[in-house]
Structures are given as C-alpha cells and as structure tokens.
Amino acid sequence: MSLEEYKGVFTFAQQVDHKLEGVALELIGKGKELAKDLGTDVTAVLIGSDVKDLADTLAQYGADHVIVVDDPKLKDYRTEPYAQALTGVINEFKPEIMLVGATAIGRDLGPTVSARVKTGLTADCTSLEIGNFPLNAPEDKQKKNQLLMTRPAFGGNTIATIACPDNRPQMATVRPGVMVKCEPNKSAKADIIEYKADLTENNKYVEILDIVKEVGKKVDIMEAKILVSGGRGVGSAENFKLLEDLADAIGGTVSCSRAVVDNGWLPKDLQVGQTGKTVRPNVYFAIGISGAIQHVAGMEESDIIIAINKDESAPIFEVADYGIVGDLNKILPALTEAIKAQKAEA
C-alpha cells in the first residue's frame, strides 16, 4: 500500500463516563491547522458505549466528520477492546495522521495501536507542524508535507523534533493543555459515520473487578485562568491557607509543585510539572517554588508568571515575567487584602 493512499487528520475523542476530555477538543483544534496545511479535513474518532450524542460537541469544536464506534464492551476503558476499535478504524479509513491525547488512557492505547498497525508513535508532543524531512536536505531529497512532532525529553532538558517518513499513519500522543481549542460553533451538527469494529474477545481481554474514583471535590487546574501555586517554601500544609485566601480573593485556583505532593500537603491532581500536569493559565503565581526544570516544563507557557521567593538565586526568576524577592508570609496576606480592597471599590 502506498503512503499516498492515507488521507486526512484523525483525532481520538477520549471520553470517560460519557464526558469528553478537554484534550479531545484540543486535538481537533490542532488537527484543523494541520488539515488546512495539507488541504484535507479532520475526523474525530469517538469510542465508547452509548456515546453517539457526544458527536455534535465534537462537530461544534471543529470536527468535519465523527466516526463512532459504539459497543457495550467499550463502556469502561480497557486496552484490548479500545485497541481493536481504533485499529479497525485506522485500517478501514487509512488516515495520514492519528492524534491521541497523552493521558493515562492515551499513553496506553497509543503504543498498543501503533505497534499493531506497525507505525511510529511519538510520545507526549508539545508542538506539531507540517514540514519537509530531513530538515536541511536539498529540496529534491526531502519528503514533503510530513508531520513534524516536537517533544521534550530527558527530563525537560532537551527538545527533539521527530518525523515518521515511511510509515502511515503518522501517530503522536499530545500533551493535554498545550494545544488550543477552536471557538465552538453552537449550531454545528456532526457528520456521523458509524463503524462496527471487530471486538472478538481474546486472551488479552482483562476483567474489571472494581473501579474506585477519587473522592472529594475535583478541581481541574488545567482549566483555571489564574493559578496560585505553592512549593516547598510555603513550609507546611497549614500555611497553604495563605495561598487559598489569595486564590479566593483573585478568583484563582491553588496548585503546587512536586515537593508539596511528596510531603503530603496537597493531593497529586493539583501538581504542576513533568510528572504532574501542564498548565497555561493567564496568570501563574509561583510562590515558594524554586523552579526545578521539571516544574518549569509544566508551567512556562503561562501568559504571565509572577514569582515570589526569598532566595534571589532561585531558578524560577529566570522564567518569571515579574519576580519578587521577599517573604511570602508577609507579602501574601497584604496582597490578598489589597485585592479585596480594590474589588470592594469597584
């Protein structure tokens, strides 16, 4: 089969409990840009049980077509039936690009499916573009219109751009929170293609004995416009009250660095960084955060970074737009009061 027979940009529309993940919509947004450069369109692949009604949302965020694989076996995520479904779609429709969110599900499904269809997979990409490969070769030696996939590696120390010139589809998992969704067109209706995948049970089907959801209010730091983020320098779980007060006053959400999670001060779903979440809020307060490279990798795309740290040599000041050397215990309460006072005047 020649590579030219593979057409179109496909995105995996991850849903859990009948709720689409943010990254599903982000992939469509990025997919639109790539499709424009290639002169093709975007197809979202929706897999689950009784999920067809989510297709319109995907269309509203820019999907030109939605392939739905709907089966009771696909109710809760399991590697094998989902891999059978996505592999079936790829073999039937032959996309040139297949994007999957780099979530705990996508990073399981992606490698399984890419190995099954025998193509390359680039993990956890933070930038995607269409270009020629090899980059610096003479034009007649270059392959045109390749997907160039950029990702951090080696703990965020380096960045590598990867191509997949001789296999199709070109597959990538994409880090959540990095690509930008389209403005939704509320009146769009999905062009639905129903696909019946071969979901024959085999030795690779696992049995789900139990599902335990994390309790407590679920705060999504990736959706927050303002993050008030604390690190080891905050000193204790109790002292995070100062950050919560500031967050309440300014309309933000509290997040943290890895050290805070390791100390048991805050839960892991609030962690920003390489082993936590990637965030890009309008404003990121880095309070008592030294700015290890693994943390910076998760927040450096924020629009405005304001760092408060008593150590003037802290590396966080190298990425901050506004750095304040000082004592957070003195600055935060006064800042909270100043914001409240201004809001009361308005």
Partner: peptide
C-alpha cells in the same frame, strides 16, 4: 519508523 529531525537544548523564554 520514527526519525529524529533535530534535537537541541531547550530554548526558554
């Protein structure tokens, strides 16, 4: 199947 197009130290703002 995947080939490195380029690799470099990360450029930060």
């Amino acid at each position: 199947p995947t080939k490195i197009a380029k690799a470099s130290d990360k450029v930060r703002k």
